[in-house]
Every structure is written in structure tokens, then in C-alpha cells.
Amino acid sequence: MSMDAGFVIAVGTAVLLMMAVFIIIFVAYYQQKQARQQLAFKELQAQHRRELMEATFRGQEEERRRLAEDMHDGIGTMLSITKMSLNQLEKQLGGEVQVGFQFQKTRSMIDETMTNVRRISRNLVPTTLERFGLLAALEELADRATDNDIEVELVYPEPELGFLPALELMLYRIAQELLNNAIRHARAKHITIHLIRFENEVRLSVIDDGVGFDFDAVMENRKAGLGLRNIESRLNVVNGHVTFDVAPGRGSRIHVQVHLHDAQPVDLLS
């Protein structure tokens, strides 16, 4: 073997190996740098999406409050005045039986309308939640939903939860939506709402014995899946998640989980 060939092999191998090492270092460094940028970009996008959702929910709550105030102060007051005016008119017209019966009927219609206005107004802005907290509001929600056919039960091991008002409102809205779905769509007879706080986590579960639903089919339908998508969007804001243990023909189990250290929702009540 000539020394020239040996020299060529040694130098060639050394050069190739050096190039290979350089390429490997470059790929590792450049890929890491690109991946970091990509991650930062994705985080920025997610943050932007969260901010948009926060703004949407804040706007929604403000609109609900305005509507509730208008209904209570405007329509409610007008109905009260109408009722008083009707009473006065009845007194002025005298005690004819036929007319008295008509007045009585009109008064009960006004009363019913006033009750409905109050109910809608209360649903739009949960004043119990603002005054007495989440558990009281959920109890009220369960009581209002319970009747001869439907039984709604609230289970909570701890009487004191100590959540931020905005998180309480978010959980209340989710419970309200799930309860509404269970009654209206799943035709459930017995619904249980569980609310449990662990050290750094809160779990809200709504379990019913209704007819269930096909999750994929509902989510594919833009209109039908709006409520469930709304729940997911609310939870996205606080990095929470929801698990749907559902199927057609059997009761549903829907679990919501929020890590409390991640949950810094914007104050929707302000």
C-alpha cells in the first residue's frame, strides 16, 4: 500500500467525519431554535385566542346584565304600573260581575307576565351567585329545575369553596348549560351535579339518567353543538377541560376539570 493512499484515506476520513459532526451540530442547534420559535408562535396564537374568547364572554355577560336591567326596570316597572292602573280602572267602573271577571283575568295575565320577566331576568344575571356564591346559586338552580317529574340533586363535600367570582360564574354557566341539556334534550328524570374541590383543582360533574346523545353527530352539527362548544370555549380560557362520557340510549356523565393555578379568568362581573 502506498503512503499516498494511506494519507488520502486518513485525511479524507477525517474531513468527512468533521463535516458530519458539523452537520449534526448544525441540525440539532437550528432545529431546536426553529422549534422554540414555533412553540413561542403557537403560544402567542393560543394567548390571542384566549383573549378573544375572554372579550366575547365579557361582552356576553355585559349584554345579559343590560338586558336583565332593562327588563326589570323597564318592562317590570311598566307592568306594575299597568296593574295599578287596571286596579284603579276597576274601582272607577264599579262592581259589574262580567267586567270584574274580565279584570281578574287580565290581572292574572299581568301577574304571570311579571313572574316570567323576573324569571328571565334572574336567569340572565344570577344575583344569588353574586350575593351568596356558587353553591347557593347551584342549589337555587337545582331547586328551580326540580318538579314532579324531574329531580335535581347537588352534591358537594365542602361547604366553602373560595373560588374567584369569575371562575364561579364560569362554572355556574357550564352547570346551567349541562342541566338545561339534560332536561330538554336527554329528557332525564334524575340529575346529579357534583362539585368537588381538591387541593389545586375543581371538578364539576353533571350525571343524568336520560336518553344520551351521539357526541360526534352533535358536534358536527353547528347549531346543535353550540352549547357544548361554548362549554369548551369557556374552559379554554382557563386551560380547563371537559370529558363527555356519553352515548345514545344511556345516561350521560360529563366531567369538567379546572386547575386552580391555571385559572385566572377575566372578571366577567365587572
Partner: peptide
């Protein structure tokens, strides 16, 4: 890469 570069020559 290292194996191929190291044995090519």
C-alpha cells in the same frame, strides 16, 4: 451519518 462518513474512504 458518522458510520458512513467514517468508513467511506
Amino acid at each position: 451519518l458518522l458510520y458512513a462518513a467514517g468508513t467511506l474512504f
